[in-house]
Simulated scan of single mutants.
Amino acid sequence: MSLPNLARSARRLRLATLFCTAMILLFGLLAAVVATTGGELAQVRTTGDPISAVATAALFSVALWRLIRMLRRIEGGETFTQGTVSDLRGFSLYTLLAVLASVLLPPMVRLASDLQKGGRTTLSFDIGGSDLIAILAAALLFFVARLLVEAQRLADENSQIV
């Protein structure tokens, strides 16, 4: 793929990511409103607790912001730079944290609520196939970032030979 085509593809993906980020922030804000109104807001329902939803949305929004930065760099012609790799690592890290928050926070919030009420406490985690795939994808992106660092090192080495 030529550089202009790569830049064009990066721009399209960046715009799509901006749209997704706006939607996640909107849904996170709605979850926060539901939490502050006691869940009585008409036509707005959240799955799970609003605290977990807001925390997960915030972490994933930071991940998408790092992806947007990386794509903007690629649009500008930076492909194998330290900044691009750093943004890819940041995207991977915050995606991983968002997935872990979506799995770990709901049972922790339920446990805290049960303890506060003085009732019987049980702790159970619900992890599904999509969560495992997201964890694997985040781990794979960390590996891809390492590959990019190695590719840059080899390119630098080869340029010094000539």
Rank of each mutant, 00 (worst) to 15 (best):
S2L: 10
S2E: 09
A7Y: 02
R8Y: 10
R8T: 15
S9P: 11
A10S: 13
R12A: 15
R12K: 15
L13Y: 12
A16N: 13
C20H: 01
T21H: 00
T21V: 12
A22V: 10
M23E: 10
M23F: 07
I24A: 06
I24W: 02
L26G: 05
L26K: 01
L26A: 06
F27M: 07
G28R: 03
L29W: 06
V33L: 08
A35G: 14
A35T: 12
E40V: 10
E40C: 10
L41Q: 09
A42K: 07
A42E: 12
A42F: 08
Q43P: 04
V44H: 09
T46R: 04
T46N: 13
T47H: 09
P50R: 06
P50L: 05
I51W: 07
S52F: 00
A53S: 08
T56S: 06
A57G: 08
A57L: 06
A57C: 13
A57E: 09
F60K: 07
A63C: 09
W65D: 11
I68K: 11
R69D: 14
R69C: 15
R72C: 07
I74Q: 03
E75Q: 04
E75C: 05
G77C: 14
T79N: 12
T79S: 01
F80S: 03
Q82R: 00
Q82M: 05
G83K: 09
T84W: 12
R89K: 14
L93E: 07
Y94P: 00
T95I: 04
T95M: 06
L96R: 04
L97I: 02
A98H: 00
A98T: 01
A101N: 01
V103E: 05
L105S: 03
P107V: 08
M108S: 06
M108Q: 10
V109A: 01
V109D: 11
V109T: 05
R110Q: 14
R110W: 05
S113A: 08
D114F: 03
L115M: 12
L115P: 13
G118C: 06
G118F: 01
G119D: 02
G119W: 02
T121W: 03
T122F: 02
F125H: 10
G128P: 04
G129A: 13
D131G: 07
A134V: 05
L136Y: 13
A137N: 11
A137D: 06
A138E: 08
F143I: 09
A145Q: 09
A145H: 00
R146Q: 13
L147G: 15
L147M: 12
V149S: 01
V149H: 01
R153T: 13
A155H: 13
D156E: 15
E157D: 15
N158Y: 11
N158P: 06
I161V: 15
